[in-house]
Design a protein around this nucleic acid. Structure first.
Lengths: 245, 245
DNA sequence: TATTTTAGATGGTCTAGACAACTATATTAA
DNA sequence: TTAATATAGTTGTCTAGACCATCTAAAATA
């Protein structure tokens, strides 16, 4: 497993081995890894070398160590980052609301003009399109329309509307999600939004558009959400770099 | 300098020592630090212990190492973060507008109710309060009201309204800026905003509130901005963690 | 039975070296 | 003078231990 004559550092080889086992699902979140001493014995290396491998993975957030207990596979960052930042469900829970959904429609269709532009595809290219009313404590909070590039994300069904789309993409399709760009702008409700959100025409709404990309920068999902201005505030924390004098 | 009998780990003490010297300006960006062996000899500790201190500082971005050459103080990232993210001037330049200001007033007064609440001070505590109309290509873009805790940030004058407040705080007062929390919400313009922003009553506006904190978590600045909904979109990039399987 | 003690396992810190890889400088040979 | 070579100094990697602090579970005790 470990090649001591390789030009690759031993600690690096151990790192890669651990990464692989985690990716293969052999070690799952919460699982305890063999102790440093066991690793050292197994690979016939010094414990410090094992530690060097593990410390880096801990810094990356892949592993978690607890003194006196052991080293564990960390919970997936998946939920913490994009998921946490973009999931309506998580957002509402964090605000103390009970999230809910009403699916207006789910269909496979041709891309509309703005969706095609955002997703960087032709106007007649196939997309999945769905519209949901997002509820918080059973009262409408947002009207959300999602467009997904059907040539990239294949095999999507109405079932996925309720579950985690990102999970499906990463686990089933084995694609890596990269980043998302959002824009926020203020507007007033038109007749359509007013009816669906149970507010009056001319009431303020917050338009949030999200364009989600794969790791290779290909956009695959375009979401337009109209949040009720009377119920929703968008919050953002901007940390200063730790290292700045 | 290093207390081996201290309960604080030696590597941690070395870290703190290095941090202090950098903050004190004794070691400036680009400077080469004493080599690991020199440190080890000076403190009479093992070189591995010195390395543990340095490696963490490198991970934090404070130091930079080059094999065969040495360890150096990294360039600082001052302007990149908060400054870039919160400065109207920078924001407008990036959007291709020519930024401008009209100062409506600057005064030292007692904190209003919501400002006091945000800044976590008494309602009769002294604050600097200023209101500016922010222009983009000579046309109103936002109406901005700023409240600053006058007991924390002393000696502010009308002069500072046009210049960089953060620069003054960090360079002159020697305080460290920590982070900022922003909230965005949609609303419609009242009579006052409509007049000052040259729009109609009932037109959409985007309220952006920012609460800026010092490094010790003390809030010192509260800014309420009303952006014209027809001119302004707020953008945010959400990178996925590099390390996620 | 319930509580306390103890033993064993874990990660956290540290040592006093070693050799490899890389960089810059000084020396030597063409 | 120029090019090749040695040298010294740097970080990178690694060893084979050591002791400490914390946690868990088994064993001893009340």
């Amino acid at each position: 497993m470990i090649d001591k004559s390789s030009p690759l550092p031993i600690y690096y080889q151990i790192q890669e081995m651990i990464r692989k086992k985690m990716n293969a699902g052999e070690w799952e979140p919460g699982d305890m890894l063999p102790s440093e001493r066991i690793f050292a014995e197994e690979f016939e290396v010094s414990r410090m070398t094992v530690r060097q491998a593990i410390i880096e993975l801990v810094n990356e957030g892949l592993l978690r160590r607890e003194k006196g207990k052991g080293t564990f596979v960390a919970e997936k960052k998946l939920e913490q980052t994009l998921q946490g930042l973009t999931s309506f469900t998580e957002d509402m829970k964090a605000r103390g609301f009970e999230p809910g959904n009403i699916l207006n429609y789910f269909r496979e269709t041709q891309a509309s003009s703005d969706a095609a532009k955002a997703l960087n595809i032709n106007e007649n290219a196939k997309v999945y399109e769905m519209q949901r009313i997002r509820l918080a404590d059973k009262e409408p909070m947002a009207l959300e329309t999602t467009y997904i590039n059907a040539n990239l994300i294949k095999g999507l069904t109405e079932e996925h509307a309720g579950k985690s789309l990102y999970q499906y993409i990463e686990k089933e399709l084995n694609l890596k999600i990269g980043f998302a760009d959002q824009t926020l702008e203020s507007a007033v409700a038109g007749k359509n939004e007013a009816v669906l959100l149970n507010i009056k025409k001319g009431d303020p709404i917050l338009w949030i558009s999200r364009l989600t990309h794969l790791q290779d920068d290909t956009p695959f999902e375009y979401v337009k959400s109209a949040y009720r201005g009377d119920r929703y505030k968008f919050s953002i924390h901007m940390p200063r770099d730790e290292h700045s004098s």
